[in-house]
Design a protein around this nucleic acid. Structure first.
Lengths: 378, 378
DNA sequence: CGGCTTATCTTCGATATCGAAGGAAGTGAG
DNA sequence: CTCACTTCCTTCGATATCGAAGATAAGCCG
């Protein structure tokens, strides 16, 4: 059953606060929303009657009467989210708070083109719904991550590399022929940033770096994902300082990803006679103290850190979170930190945290859930 | 007479729309504010009665009845603003819409310390008010720009260079002993950005570069000044690529401002036997086609452009505006553009404007006015 | 020139929210 | 154990805003 969230005005604001875990009681809602306690009481009554919220036990006393705990109702609804890669897709169902109900990975070739790929994903969603969700629980929205830029105005994929047929394709329109629901289409690095932001409460400005086969970055400004015109956060083609010169796949010399991406590290290891087939295996080599691997990863971290230095001075984030398959290599994080601390202004790094990402491998799916909830409540 | 703006709730929202020039009628206000026409009518009546708005003639018909034009009342109030330099201060009075009533420049040594400097400024404000403003027109706020970082949480100056006695000084508290009014303290590059933003309506993301004796940058994200932790936008100490190595005054090698600031250009010209005493004179040399000057300015533009490339890819601004005393040198702007276009992602520069700043030499004062109005209405 | 449509602004009953007061149930000190 | 204070949530009259309808005055077309 597909059904948009039946809320309006202050109801949506209150539902959001409960769904995101920030409020568990009417008193919490009054404090956080700015509404009078009487108004909160009336609106919560409506949300309870609509089957979107439920009461469950009592909360902790803060010196006076215990509050009645509110939670999302089991029948509030689910969100279907997917994160497309070049050769596979990770997809699943989340409840409105973003808690996964089921997540799967399936093979899928993005080169098959958008219609075929999206129809397969939709089919997978329908299967998961039939298998895991009672009929009385409605689907409330669809979210899709793609490995290329998405224009925020047109919601179309824009000049993606290695995605034939996708340029200027409206993913949302295609999915809308099948679902009359809020639909989200977003770049995967941006979804990752949105997902990571949920793990850093009270931090309003984040940079989320993806150090994987490629290098990407998502940006959160004042608690909101910053898209720019669809390419915001791109650091992979920043020119780095180097004694030699390496031509990047994009045609320019000395791009960051020509030196510091997982793909570049694999190529360098191959030249040293060490064959790796997956970026993640580099972490294993580092853990085994293979000198060539450790040196390359340190170098990569230093280069990434040098680029981040410019951005940290400019943006003054609260957090730089590093994710992606290389991020488990500790020398990567420590050399990023060293480079940032060495050249950043003291004020820019005061209270800055440079840390491994916390959201895990499903950051993008969780980010899709967060953005989709927002779309469904607006 | 000092008096805070007597508005609340929707009144402030509507006053802001008229003061910033975006609305001139009740119908405009209804469209822009989202309030019902009836609500707008009631609130506007209250603002008219309070002497904050006035009606004046009729507007242009849009196919139906002509609207009644609304404007700020002459008695709505004034704002006192100042922009401190190392050796002088530029200060004046603006009406609530930011239109200057009077602007003056006075000599003033920041090295005298904060108390002496701020008391002089306050005395100057009192003189200007007595001389230029009828007693019935109230002062509504005080704004001050300083040439160092300001922590947005504590509103204190933080580790400024060449400003003895100012570190950790609360400018706002000092001024509050004299004025019971909203008080703004902000970094001058940030004020410049806020002032420049007013000249680019409908542009939500701007970078405003100041190319003067030093190099600075202010950032506007989604229509709001981005402060970070007080040092956001700082690009002067970004390390640039160079064959040689120049130690910056901060102690690090190869900072942007060691190569591209007006001070650096003056030093290079001096080494070539061309003595300049003010950064602005370099523009005259360029206009006279002195080869050394033109070459240096082009080089400076290229270096600034290379740094901006990283930031444009990352932030995807709508506008990069270049101000400061060197910005009148056309080769500076054209070589910044060339560097940005050469290395930026196509999507990042789509619809991007790299242009000379429009706000003129009082951008910081106008920015102070805009931020102060916001402070007064919040 | 007249009739129709459009736009602006006002009026008024309906709805949402506020703010004060009060009931219920906690906590902690004496 | 009692009393005073705190916190949570509800009730109710006051206030703000909405939405529909209407008055007024434009513009445009036949």
């Amino acid at each position: 059953m597909n059904q948009r969230l039946p809320v309006q005005g202050a109801q949506g604001d209150l539902l959001r606060l409960v769904a995101t875990g920030r409020a568990e009681s009417r008193a919490d809602l009054a404090r956080l929303s700015g509404l009078a306690a009487s108004s909160v009481s009336l609106r919560v009554e409506e949300l309870l009657d609509a089957g979107l919220l439920a009461e469950e036990g009592s909360g902790t006393s803060r010196g006076g009467r215990r509050p009645r705990r509110l939670r999302l109702s089991d029948t509030a609804g689910v969100l279907a989210v997917a994160d497309l890669g070049a050769h596979h897709v990770r997809l699943g169902l989340l409840d409105l708070s973003g808690t996964p109900l089921v997540i799967e990975e399936r093979s899928c070739e993005i080169a098959d083109g958008p219609r075929a790929t999206l129809d397969r994903i939709a089919g997978a969603f329908d299967e998961l719904l039939a298998e895991h969700v009672p009929a009385a629980v409605p689907l409330r929205g669809i979210g899709t991550g793609v490995p290329g830029p998405v224009d925020p105005l047109t919601q179309r994929v824009v000049t993606p590399s290695r995605m034939p047929g996708w340029n200027d394709f409206s993913v949302a329109e295609h999915l809308a022929t099948r679902y009359d629901l809020p639909i989200l289409v977003e770049n995967d690095a941006n979804l990752m940033a949105a997902g990571e932001a949920r793990c850093w409460p009270d931090r309003r400005n984040l940079m989320v770096v993806k150090a994987g086969t490629g290098i990407g970055c998502g940006v959160v400004v004042n608690g909101r994902l910053h898209r720019g015109r669809g390419a915001a956060g791109d650091i992979s083609h920043v020119r780095v300082r180097s004694d030699s010169s390496v031509i990047c796949a994009c045609g320019h010399p000395d791009c960051l990803e020509a030196y510091a991406s997982g793909a570049a590290l694999m190529a360098s290891l191959s030249e040293a006679g060490i064959v790796v087939t997956r970026t993640g295996d580099i972490v294993g080599l580092v853990n085994d103290a293979i000198p060539e691997a450790t040196s390359l990863v340190r170098n990569a971290g230093r280069r990434i850190g040098e680029v981040l230095t410019v951005l940290v001075n400019f943006f003054n984030p609260d957090v730089v979170a590093v994710g992606g398959s290389l991020s488990a290599a500790e020398p990567l994080i420590t050399s990023i930190r060293a480079a940032v601390w060495e050249r950043c202004l003291p004020l820019a790094t005061r209270d800055l945290e440079v840390a491994p990402a916390r959201a895990g491998r499903d950051a993008a799916l969780l980010g899709a859930g967060a953005l989709l909830l927002e779309a469904a409540l607006t």
